[in-house]
Amino acid sequence: MIPYLIATLSVVVIFTLAGLALNLQWGMGGLVNFGLFGFYMLGAYICGLLVVRWGLNPLVAMTLAILTTAAISALVSLISIRLSEDYLAIVTLGFAECIRLFISYEDWLTFGTLGVSGITRPFAGLVSAQWSDLAFIILAISALCVVYVVLSLVSASPFGRLMRATRDDPDIVGSLGRSVLTIRLRSFALGGAILGLAGSLHAFYYGYIDPTQFTPIITAYAFMAVVVGGRGSNPGVLLAAFVLVFVLEGSRFLVDYVPGLDGATLASLRLIAVGTALVVLLIIKPAGFGRERPTVRAGSDLKN
């Protein structure tokens, strides 16, 4: 049971990171990133290839993957200044598909559809194999904590306020002398960094990556987490991602307990259940569970 719990928790933590990144970009910033899985894939591949092909220390590889994904993400956002929501969604989705095609076919660099195997985890030399999963989960949870603190500070700061203002009306923000492009660039870079981190953890966790692991369903999970958790609310999205992925991943063991249920049926039933739950939720609580908090309050001296 414990190994299973750790395995599920690892997946949960990685998806939660993706959900938080999307909450930053779309929830707070209003930037529809349908290509989320592409940036995630990029992070996983940069990290995996640096470790396997060039023998870099896993932590160094992860850092480089985070920085590179952030930089590429920022470059993609440069397109966004002229694009409104729907078009940005198409551009990011197109970008992600390009990444996937590039990785699938440029096997001189990426091993193509064979995938990258033998990705060693950080601290692999320090901990014995039986504790490897535990060491990984500690690393992953620490990373999640750091990301959560950073995002909470950002969302309560003047930058967070500017992001939300840009989401609500970029023309007003521009007319107040603030560069909408810079704000979007920074939010995409920070979101990209988090996705690079999530991708790296994915690579470490499985130890093997191939293009079929990265599909738009990752984007869909992240959007579900933000919709359920409430756009702009970090605690809401954190909790929603946790619950959502725990239910999705955790229900796998039902196969062993419910007679007449096979894996394929369960997988379909799970999707039906999630879909139904989402629809019901959007009817009874359209804004999600969490609330966006104001960055400042006038508070007690309002009466003066």
Binding site: P158, R161, A165, D168, D169, L176, R178, R186, R297, A298
Partner: peptide
């Protein structure tokens, strides 16, 4: 037009005369 997701006070704080302490590093 307004910045609908922001409070009345936050609407004004978006428009500070100096553009300082508004980045991620400052946050």
């Amino acid at each position: 037009r307004d910045l609908a997701g922001l409070t009345v006070l936050e609407n004004l704080l978006v428009a500070q005369p100096q553009r300082v302490l508004e980045g991620i590093g400052a946050a």
